[in-house]
Write a protein that binds this DNA or RNA. Structure first.
Lengths: 160, 160
DNA sequence: CAAATAGTTTAGCCTAGACTAACAATTTTA
DNA sequence: TAAAATTGTTAGTCTAGGCTAAACTATTTG
């Protein structure tokens, strides 16, 4: 037996007291986060493009860059990726359009985002903070939790 | 004026009706998420190492790898980074230890994680789902929202 | 105590997502 | 309409975080 494996004394608990989850479940938690990270930037771009089209009538690379806070080169490269993924269509030097798949993704992302944002507001979080937190949280909230959030929003607005 | 900038007719709103935030604020939201992404893996490793030490008496690379669901090579590389960042100490082929800074980070991360997890449980989310969501959400929740969550947990456990 | 097994590290590769600099196209304006 | 300003693209670089394969170290076991 590995001499490092198990000390005889019970270790002092430095945490909440919850046991570690089973290895497989634990790994699946991190795996879920890694997968979310792969898709979330894509979703953010698509959602933003949808918003720009809805509010401004068009989505230009320069606007995306300034709103994302990144360089135009970064946006240009990302648009190429979105094209390859079949989410947008674009002609050089022309405004972008979402494909059907892109519109679907934008709609779903936007709905998810709104639920998280309104949930945080209903909970009593300040608007500016709620916007920042919602942007980060939206990609990590399961459908189940989203349902619970929605129920909470409904309940809170009834009692107001 | 750019001919693409503003169509004459009001565009049909495809979203919740919220206006786009001012460009600077919008960019800051995404910026916050990007910064969180840089630190969150580090925090996850440190938190896990702290948990392993607390529950098992030691943190070995092989355990970290299986719990993270990544290869041992990936863990080895990450440990070198944690070392450079002054968060862990390690001798080759030996178990890891957290530095004072590492312990602090582990404690803070763990506390944050527990609040989010218990908040989701209090909200009525199933335990397995709550664990998965908490893992992704914890790095994107501001201190303000964390306070609100804690208040909610307290209120809910009182009324039980 | 030597061989087998388990654990760790290193080397080298890949992709995503950021950047700057240089260049090209378009649009605005003098 | 020519020049200036804006916008978009391309090329090349960097870092992080994955991977596999191979080498090395430690531990266990026959």
């Amino acid at each position: 037996m590995n001499q490092h494996t198990q000390p005889t004394e019970t270790p002092i608990s430095l945490d909440s007291g919850d046991a570690l989850p089973p290895v497989k479940q634990h790994a699946r938690q991190y795996e879920t986060v890694r997968v979310a990270h792969e898709t979330e930037l894509i979703e953010d771009y698509v959602e933003l493009i949808g918003d720009l089209i809805a509010h401004r009538g068009e989505a230009r690379a320069a606007d995306i860059a300034s709103r994302m806070g990144v360089s135009q080169a970064t946006v240009s490269k990302m648009i190429r990726r979105l094209n390859e993924l079949g989410l947008v269509t674009s002609q050089p030097y022309r405004s972008l359009f979402l494909t059907t798949a892109g519109k679907d993704m934008a709609r779903i992302s936007r709905a998810r985002h709104d639920i998280v944002l309104n949930f945080l507001r209903a909970l009593g979080v300040d608007d500016t903070t709620a916007r920042i937190d919602a942007e980060g949280m939206e990609h990590h909230v399961s459908d189940e939790t989203l349902d619970v959030m929605q129920a909470f929003i409904r309940k809170t607005s009834d009692n107001s």
